[in-house]
Design a binder for these strands. Structure first.
Lengths: 111, 111
DNA sequence: GTAATTGTCAACCGATTAGTTGAATGATGT
DNA sequence: ACATCATTCAACTAATCGGTTGACAATTAC
């Protein structure tokens, strides 16, 4: 499977733990441990979720001594939101941009 | 895992074949076979994807004789779009509604 | 009635997911 | 130097995913 940007973004968002982490990060920079804590999850488990978010470009990591500080990097969500916005247009009966949408998605398959 | 609405919606959208099917359906009602065709995929395979979209509430099915006609039912995307829209506020430096967002997501975990 | 078409279901396969544990790495504190 | 803290890595597990094939049910065409 070729894994385009929307795949990775939507999949990252499909997990409630990861959405929770994003929500937590919205309130400020956090360490992996601090991110793990509200989910009663091992460090290693949290570390994996953070890696998924990182690979999706949704967070940025900054090492400060032995702790990794994670901050949110929400801009990539823009593409996902733009995609959904086309559908909003659709279900509100405005079909104008849909062919462009289909083409965009097709082209991004290998991007 | 408790599977709330956002989980199911984002997961359904995370697959390019399913997004392709939605795009195809945007152009009109289609049978399972017609949906399968551009992906060179078996009926059974397409049938599974359609079921995922159906379970997410993104499409509706109408049986006409031996064929199942699928039409798009995009309204459930509204919730996903609303969720993303909160983040748009974030990445444009407006943090006002984010606490509400966190609470909403928390409450929907069992909804 | 028989054959072809449309689709589902069940069983299976290989890959991935979300989680764990335990060992290893690296920075800090004493 | 040594213990501790924060994190990753490797190996493992159970569940799920995306896909296939083959059997079946229902509808349509001849």
């Amino acid at each position: 499977m070729v894994e385009n940007r929307l795949d990775v973004t939507f999949r990252a968002l499909a997990d409630p733990t990861r959405r929770g982490m994003l929500a937590s990060l919205a309130l400020g920079e956090k360490s992996i441990g601090a991110l793990a804590e509200p989910f009663a999850m091992s460090f290693a488990g949290a570390s994996k979720h953070v890696k998924v978010l990182e690979d999706a470009g949704l967070i940025a990591r900054r090492k400060k001594g032995r702790t990794h500080l994670i901050k949110i990097e929400a801009k990539p969500l823009e593409e996902a939101e733009r995609w959904l916005r086309q559908w909003e247009k659709f279900w509100t009966r405005r079909l104008d941009r849909l062919e462009a949408l289909i083409e965009q998605d097709k082209e991004r398959k290998n991007g």
